[in-house]
């Protein structure tokens, strides 16, 4: 009598185990926000050695963060998180990942300054910027907001900006990390490896 309820329980457990084994291999539950309809994206911006096109990295996973150099609190927090994630990849995986920092403050940040800034986090990172009009256009493509605040004089102001990290694969925006999520290095690594 007592043993009877065990049968259906065992049956259910067995079915769960079978279902688990039948899950498609490689299925990964993403930690970042997956875009149900990946969005085609491209841009041409200024790098330290001239124009850089996003599609130049067609065969790489591109991680894009918009910020500005005079930002000692928010931007380094995310760039340090991207450094940790990038340095957590194997050298083979690193070859297929490009981290890009885009300055939304072209008035103060030249392409050279933006790139030196990015490279201080990891020498393989790339810093870009462009004319105010181009930056505006690229920001619109990614749904990035940025606005000067606390203006004290020429070159003396702060900038509010969207602090999302965008992941582009084969010219398509596929995944987003909020500034809080991007700090979870292990989970970010899991997502990147699933996309590689």
């Amino acid at each position: 009598m007592k043993a009877k309820p065990l049968v259906p329980i065992l049956l259910v457990l067995g079915l769960v185990a079978v279902a688990y084994l039948l899950l498609p291999k490689g299925s990964h539950s993403f930690y970042g926000t997956r875009l149900l309809n990946p969005k085609p994206v491209d841009f041409v911006l200024e790098g330290p050695q001239g124009p850089v096109r996003l599609s130049d990295f067609q065969d790489k996973l591109v991680l894009i963060f918009f910020g500005y150099v005079h930002c000692p609190d928010v931007c380094p927090t995310t760039l340090l998180a991207l450094k940790r994630a990038y340095e957590g990849l194997s050298p083979k995986e690193q070859e297929r990942v490009q981290v890009v920092f885009i300055s939304v403050d072209p008035e103060r940040d030249t392409p050279g300054v933006s790139d030196q800034y990015a490279k201080a986090f990891n020498p393989s990172f790339l810093g870009l910027t462009g004319s105010p009009e181009t930056i505006q256009e690229v920001a619109r493509t990614f749904g990035v907001y940025y606005q000067k605040t606390q203006y004290r004089g020429p070159g003396e102001y702060l900038v509010d900006h969207t602090a999302t990290t965008f992941v582009v694969k084969e010219g398509q925006l596929v995944l987003l990390f909020s500034p809080d999520k991007v700090e979870e290095t292990e989970k970010v690594l899991g997502d990147l490896q699933a996309l590689l």
């Binding site: 609190d73 749904g143 990035v144 907001y145 606390q150 509010d160 900006h161």
Partner: peptide
């Protein structure tokens, strides 16, 4: 003395700082 500023725009987190 700065305090971080956080708002949401277009479903995403916008960060900044305020003196």
């Amino acid at each position: 003395i700065h305090m971080d500023h956080r708002e949401h725009r277009g479903g995403q987190v916008v960060l900044g700082m305020r003196p």
